[in-house]
Amino acid sequence: MLEYLLSFLILAGALFTFIGSLGLARLRDFYTRLHGPTKATTLGVGCMLIASSVYFSNRGAGMSLHEVLVTLFLFITAPISAHLLAKAALHLKLESLAPPPDDDPANS
């Protein structure tokens, strides 16, 4: 039973990470590319870390919860880097598929 749960978590994690990177390679402008890695990849790594936590907790050496720390850290930092990247792209006026926002100086 436990092995099935572990397998599911590992497979889901790897699949989401792969889909995130696929989005990075496949989509057509920078702003849409930003979505794949920030969301799918974060959840993918989250799944993988939970799998690791479950695996090491069941090897008899007591609970293993320090993976939670990496998950928490990623969930806090991923949006911040995404926000900064979007800000940098807007600053450089990268071309985008969506009509870019009106650029009044009060918005920078």
Partner: peptide, 21 residues
């Protein structure tokens, strides 16, 4: 563009974390 490369590098870090785990 430069932000594209930074985003790729960031994704690479996250992929590496998954690989290491």
């Amino acid at each position: 563009s430069a932000p594209d490369r930074i985003l790729a590098l960031d994704t690479l870090y996250v992929n590496t974390i998954a690989l290491l785990v």
